[in-house]
């Protein structure tokens, strides 16, 4: 088993410990947390946040009526993935090829997003290719991908390793779009993302309702409602690309 296996073993161990404490309710942040907790209880309510595609992963029967002991707030809405690609095509010089970066072990939902991105690629006339990463060497190797833009998927692996990832991408001097503003604050070119703080605030409201007697089965899973766009112009200058005023005008944050 790869690195993701050891990681999962650790999450599993924490899940065991939490369940042993007999909590009244559980909050699971991130897809692996939900997977490990729901495997251990069908009775304790689980509210999730920052989770992608809970239906395909079998967490809930459907968004409107989750049906079991699991409900919560997703970090992904279909159009998001297409928007990432579209942003890359607005960069001058325009990339004709885009590499999609993620770790298959920690982003089991990646095929869903890749499908959307490939559809968008056909419409925008951009070649889309996967560039899976799973360890230091594979991240460092991204520095040699100089013939296209990079699209980094929402994946805790990419977040945890963002310093390494950003160093490789900036060494390649290629445009990149990220799933969280944190990357842009730390030198990434641009991001379009949901607000995870908002998801936690909304999760707290479900925790409150369930503790007061509501059933998780009856509380609909909700998709994100607010999005934010961030652009780092310092990085744009450093790698020699320009961005159209129309994109800059819609940014929530521009780092000069």
């Amino acid at each position: 088993m790869g690195n993701g296996g050891g990681d999962r073993a650790r999450i599993a161990q924490f899940a065991d410990e939490l369940i042993a404490l007999k909590p009244d309710i559980l909050l699971a942040v991130g897809t692996p947390s939900v997977e490990e907790l729901r495997r251990r209880t069908t009775t304790i309510p689980i509210v999730f946040a920052v989770v992608t595609d809970p239906v395909s992963q079998g967490f809930v029967q459907n968004l409107a009526h989750p049906g079991g002991n699991v409900t919560g707030f997703t970090d992904y809405d279909g159009p998001l993935a297409g928007k990432w690609l579209e942003m890359l095509t607005q960069v001058t010089p325009r990339p004709s090829r885009v590499f999609v970066v993620y770790n298959p072990a920690t982003a089991p939902f990646a095929p869903l997003m890749l499908g959307t991105i490939e559809d968008a690629g056909r419409a925008l006339d951009v070649t889309v290719e996967s560039a899976p990463v799973h360890d230091t060497a594979s991240i460092v190797a991204l520095a040699s991908r100089k013939d296209g833009g990079l699209l980094v998927l929402p994946d805790f692996f990419t977040m945890s390793n963002r310093a390494l990832l950003l160093a490789a991408i900036n060494e390649a001097r290629v445009p990149a779009v990220f799933w969280s503003r944190t990357f842009v604050d730390e030198g990434g070119l641009m991001s379009y993302s949901t607000d995870s703080a908002e998801q936690l605030r909304r999760a707290a409201s479900y925790i409150d309702r369930i503790l007061k007697g509501a059933r998780a089965a009856d509380l609909p899973v909700q998709n994100p409602t607010t999005f934010e766009l961030a652009i780092n112009l310092k990085t744009a200058k450093a790698i020699g690309v320009t961005l159209p005023p129309s994109l800059l005008a819609t940014a929530n944050e521009v780092i000069e």
Binding site: I11, L27, E36
Partner: peptide, 8 residues
């Protein structure tokens, strides 16, 4: 009692 499991 609230249990929180997170991946960060």
């Amino acid at each position: 009692r609230l249990g929180v499991l997170s991946v960060t």
